[in-house]
């Protein structure tokens, strides 16, 4: 079977059929999924879509990386675009 690829932050990564985005990233050595909206890091945690810790963006919609199967050619981006986050973690509406 020929290898399949998807993109993480524009970088081409290989994946196995059936893999979730989170596991494909882990397998590629990517554990840090980028900044969270409050200045922490997104990362795989509970594996069942409950903790929201592995949120990433695909087609500019937010999804749990541990639930979403990888498909060839999809472009996966960190939750937060660019380096900026809402630094206002302690002051909320």
């Amino acid at each position: 079977m020929s290898a399949s690829f998807f993109f993480w932050r524009g970088e081409k990564l290989e994946f196995q059929p059936g893999q979730t985005v989170a596991l494909a990233l882990e397998a590629a050595g990517q554990r840090d999924f980028g900044p969270s909206a409050t200045g922490l890091r997104q990362r795989y945690f509970c594996g069942i879509g409950a903790c929201q810790g592995c949120l990433v963006r695909i087609d500019d919609t937010v999804v749990e990386a541990c639930l979403r199967p990888v498909e060839a050619g999809i472009r996966v981006e960190p939750l937060v675009a660019g380096p900026s986050v809402d630094t206002d973690g302690g002051r909320h509406d």
């Binding site: 969270s36 909206a37 963006r57 937060v80 675009a81 986050v85 809402d86």
Partner: peptide, 12 residues
């Protein structure tokens, strides 16, 4: 009054 709150846009 029903109100809705989105998640943080986080610069998106």
């Amino acid at each position: 009054g029903q109100l809705l709150l989105t998640e943080r846009a986080a610069g998106r």
